[in-house]
């Protein structure tokens, strides 16, 4: 016979299944590994059940467990997460912001109105990991800056900065591709 606490716990964690699967798809890049990661996440959540206070933030708690589970898997496979941002990203965002200050958005960027799923997917894949994770947790999963800081274990100011820069890089990647596709220079 399950306790009342246990029943509430199950309800609170189960309602995040679709979001967890979406984040797992982003981390693993394929459905099979994503499903495995989701199941491992729920198994690890059960092991840590006592650390969770009913009625608090199950979403952020589960996403933290998923991220740690994923990173542990990668460590075991002796692979490092790829795509850490280098100086070129810093340089690119500095130049972009400087240009925006001087001239405002490029009028040719009107072509961003007709974005395709493939464009978005490709642009996101081209973001360095730390920007990609932060933008996805904010813009797709809808987490607050504070929750993202908890999930990624980084300061809230870093979350804010990565979201700003990540969105700017994303916008400029999409604008460049769309402009080329439309015959621009």
């Amino acid at each position: 016979m399950k306790s009342k606490r246990r029943k509430i716990f199950e309800k609170e964690v189960l309602c995040h299944l679709d979001r967890l699967y979406g984040y797992a798809m982003h981390l693993c890049k394929n459905g099979e590994d994503a499903s495995d990661l989701v199941q491992d996440t729920y198994l690890n959540a059960l092991k840590s059940e006592k650390q969770y206070s009913i009625g608090t933030n199950a979403g952020a708690w589960l996403f933290t467990i998923m991220r740690n589970t994923f990173l542990n898997k990668i460590r075991k496979m002796s692979r490092k997460p790829a795509g850490m941002a280098g100086e070129w990203i810093e340089q690119m965002t500095r130049e972009d912001i400087s240009e925006l200050r001087k001239h405002g958005p490029d009028p040719s960027v009107k072509c961003l109105d007709n974005l395709l799923k493939e464009d978005i997917a490709r642009a996101i894949e081209n973001l360095p990991d730390e920007f990609r994770d932060t933008v996805i947790l904010c813009d797709v999963q809808g987490f607050s800056y504070a929750d993202i800081a908890t999930i990624l274990d980084i300061p809230i100011g870093t979350v804010r900065s990565r979201i700003h820069r990540g969105r700017l890089i994303l916008r400029n990647l999409l604008a460049d591709w769309k402009n080329v596709a439309m015959g621009g220079s």
């Binding site: 679709d18 699967y21 982003h26 499903s35 961003l112 974005l115 799923k117 813009d139 797709v140 994303l170």
Partner: peptide, 21 residues
């Protein structure tokens, strides 16, 4: 533009877990 990219990204990247999962 920024809001449009965010909305489009959210629309495209939301998943439903497969029934087996």
């Amino acid at each position: 533009q920024t809001a449009h990219i965010q909305t489009t990204m959210r629309d495209f990247m939301l998943y439903e877990a497969p029934s087996e999962l």
